[in-house]
């Protein structure tokens, strides 16, 4: 995490975790979700979707904090995030889904 100093209570803080779902074929490849994700969870995929754009893909699923910024900035209703169940152990990576649907 990019802290300018390590918070004293870092061990006590429970950071929420999110699961990102991407509707790949709705995407128009603006890249806003990728650029403005505060945890750099997303990356531009090298593949094309049905519309011929490069959609985002999840590269750091574990780091998603469910802030939902990708969801609210997306002009295409193509990505959203939900909270990962709190009892899933921290060491298990959150699963992320890419959905084929227009």
């Amino acid at each position: 995490m990019d802290f300018w100093r390590v918070p004293l209570d870092i061990d006590a803080i429970q950071v929420p975790r999110g699961i990102v779902t991407i509707f790949e074929d709705r995407c128009k490849g603006c890249g806003y979700c990728i650029t403005f994700c505060p945890r750099h969870v997303l990356n531009l995929a090298s593949r094309f979707n049905v519309k011929g754009y490069h959609p985002p893909e999840v590269i750091r699923a574990d780091d998603c904090v469910n802030c939902r910024f990708c969801e609210i900035i997306c002009p295409e209703f193509a990505i959203y995030s939900t909270e990962a169940s709190p009892d899933s152990p921290a060491s298990v990576p959150c699963s992320c889904d890419t959905i084929k649907e227009t």
Binding site: K28, G29, Y32, K51, I72, C74, P75, F77
Partner: peptide, 22 residues
Amino acid sequence: VRRDRMPHIWCPGCGIGTVFSA
């Protein structure tokens, strides 16, 4: 949203979709 009208006409990178969603 009227899903049957999607995708909308707004160009890639256009901000209207974000304001609409807000």
